Simulated scan of single mutants.
Amino acid sequence: MTGQLTDRGPAVFAVTLVLIVSATCFMILRLISKWGVTRKATADDYCTIMGWVFAVALSVSIMIGTSVGLGAPDSEIKPEWVTPLKRSVYAFTVFYNPAIMATKTTILILYWRIAEVPRFFRYASLVTMAIVLIAGVVLTFLSIFQCRPVDAAFSMVAGTCIDIVRLHLSSTPIGVLTNLTILLLPLPILTSLRMEFRQKLILVATFIVGGFITIVNVVRIVYLQEALKEELLIDLWGSITATSLLRRLGYVLGYQ
């Protein structure tokens, strides 16, 4: 049974704004606390700033998109919104992977900089970092050049585009594995620290809570699969661009 589709744009705008403001506050506090003590900038600080810049660009493109129909049912999207909506969707599709790549790289650089750790820990951090960087760069370029010609992705120009859903589905396992690696790598070191059991338990639990990101990735796979099924029911041989993905996800999320 299909329920009535509602405009989720205001909710998307509010959640995005709250998250990016929170992230900005945490980043500023991190830099103040670190630079105020050590008075020295390191590579992970620059990666943090870079990830924040991409995250802000990603968030702004989403919030702009909500003003031109992002999150709204197809029937409520005005004809004059189509082009700016495509530009918004294209923008956050492009900025998404660099934001994730920079964030993960920041954590892995921090792991590598820890001096008194087993050699395996440092090598594993470097290998994971290489995988994150390679996957991030490849996915970013695929997102930028998702259509031929390129401007077909964000304008009314006709062109041939790659299937965005299949691209995200194929890259999700890499994201899940790198997330799990980042979470699990420091656990042996944390459990060996000399501290009270309660403090050690709280510290380990804090890292495990980060597993929420992995759960989100798994949930995203389910929604992407549903979007793919719905698109194939409409056009068996069609490809899914960023804009058509948006329409299909709007349908799936409104399904009761």
Rank of each mutant, 00 (worst) to 15 (best):
L183F: 11
I240W: 02
V165E: 00
E226M: 08
P173D: 05
S244E: 01
L193D: 08
F154R: 02
I202H: 03
V150G: 01
L177K: 09
L187W: 11
M195T: 12
M156H: 06
L184A: 14
L236T: 11
V216M: 05
C161F: 07
A205Q: 04
V209E: 01
V216C: 13
E230D: 15
V150L: 15
L177C: 08
F212V: 14
I202K: 03
I208D: 01
H168V: 03
K229M: 10
L193Q: 14
I174W: 07
V150F: 07
L203V: 12
S192R: 11
L180N: 09
Y223P: 00
L246S: 08
G159M: 06
N179C: 07
G210L: 07
I174H: 04
L246H: 10
P186S: 01
E231D: 13
V165W: 00
L190N: 09
L185K: 01
R148E: 10
L180K: 10
E231L: 12
I221W: 08
T214V: 14
V209P: 01
Q146Y: 06
V219D: 06
L236C: 12
S192H: 13
G211F: 09
I221T: 07
T243P: 00
L184W: 14
L224R: 00
L236V: 05
Y223I: 07
M195N: 04
L187I: 15
A227F: 10
K200T: 02
L169A: 02
C161M: 05
D235I: 04
I213R: 10
L236Q: 10
Y223L: 04
I240S: 06
M195D: 03
V218A: 04
L224I: 00
I240Q: 02
V222K: 14
K229R: 15
A242L: 00
A152T: 08
P149Q: 04
L169H: 03
I182W: 03
S171W: 13
I189E: 11
Q199W: 01
Q146N: 10
L236D: 12
S170I: 11
H168T: 05
